[in-house]
């Protein structure tokens, strides 16, 4: 095999003697690793598989479009497969045509040399939509580029800030849970005083308060939890109802069927509530996590004489022993 021969090509010197001065020292060609029988077999198999595999529709469409584009962009005069021995071109040459020129009167300067292009419209987008999309994409790309440049320097700063934000969010969550629990405990205590025991039963399961009546400070927490619960239940119902939407009501089924199929009327009390817009909450959530945290801490202190940082409910108004309202005070 020629590839096995390490001598460089082009040393066709008559002189047999080695000319050490001019000798090209060939890069040591790494001896081509011999393919073992198994390797070769595997490779062949892989190749055959890729050949034999039926292409997916998307791949097919892409291939189709690529073949079309390739054919559309190449002039027939420059493509040897179509230009050589082409009798049509030969006839035109006899009439005085040279490739590259246009047809028609020589005075006609507007005559075209290229065929009219084909533009495939694949959707119902209006005129200008595509270029509008492109423009937006370009602008976005430019903006991204600028932002990256501006922020390249303070990468560390950014990472630090992001970490801080995550940490603060975590603490906001914790504070909300504390606030909810403490409020719940207080309400329970009040209810016991009144002697309303029915309330207690319901209490733990579904908070019967509409979302809007829950304190804005931890409403987000409740909402999140309820949303999760709803999704879970819907998934469950969907699962149980054998691919039918849970609300689907089959007229042929009587009450017993429903019981058998575990199709008791689902409770969707919360859904309506959840689907309502809550601008107040949105506004609150838009605040900086540090601000939200501070509000929660203040609230806990005022209502329950509880310090989020000390994790302790003080008995007196003054909260004697707590170093301060901020985290730093507790360092």
């Amino acid at each position: 095999m020629a590839t096995q021969d390490p001598s460089p090509a082009g040393t066709g010197d008559e002189v047999d003697e080695d000319d050490y001065m001019n000798m090209v020292i060939a890069e040591p060609v790494a001896p081509k690793e011999k393919e073992t029988y198994t390797q070769r077999r595997m490779r062949k198999q892989r190749e055959a598989e890729s050949r034999g595999r039926t292409k997916s529709k998307i791949e097919q469409a892409a291939d189709e479009a690529a073949a079309r584009e390739a054919a559309l962009s190449a002039s027939l005069f420059t493509n040897p497969a179509t230009a050589s021995n082409n009798k049509g071109l030969a006839m035109m040459a006899k009439m005085g045509f040279t490739p590259g020129a246009a047809l028609g009167s020589r005075e006609n300067k507007d005559a075209r040399t290229e065929p009219v292009g084909i533009n495939m419209k694949e959707d119902r987008g209006g005129i200008g939509l595509d270029s509008e999309k492109k423009r937006k994409f370009r602008e976005e790309a430019e903006r991204q580029g600028k932002r990256v440049k501006a922020e390249e320097g303070d990468y560390r700063e950014r990472v630090r800030r992001e970490r801080e934000e995550v940490r603060l969010e975590g603490m906001v969550g914790a504070a909300m849970r504390v606030a909810e629990r403490m409020t719940g405990e207080r309400e329970e205590a009040e209810a016991l005083e009144i002697g309303d025991s029915t309330l207690e039963v319901k209490k733990r399961k579904i908070p019967n308060k509409p979302l809007k009546q829950i304190n804005i400070l931890w409403r987000g927490l409740i909402r999140q939890r309820e949303e999760k619960e709803r999704d879970r239940r819907m998934r469950y119902d969907l699962h149980q109802s054998l691919s039918r939407f849970p609300t689907y009501d089959d007229a042929d089924e009587d009450a017993e069927d429903k019981t058998a199929l575990n199709k008791e009327p689902s409770q969707y009390v919360l859904v309506e509530d959840l689907e309502e817009e809550d601008p107040e909450l949105d506004e609150f959530n838009a605040l900086d996590p540090a601000v939200r945290l501070q509000k929660l801490v203040d609230y806990l202190r005022q209502e329950f004489r509880y310090c989020f940082w000390c994790k302790y409910a003080y008995s007196d108004e003054e909260m004697e022993g707590c170093p301060g309202v901020t985290e730093e005070d507790h360092d």
Partner: peptide
């Protein structure tokens, strides 16, 4: 090739037609 049309077609179109 030199027939004076108001908008002469692309030469490749004529080539295809002749072919």
């Amino acid at each position: 090739v030199h027939f004076d049309l108001m908008d002469p077609p692309a030469p490749e179109t004529l080539m295809r037609a002749l072919e």
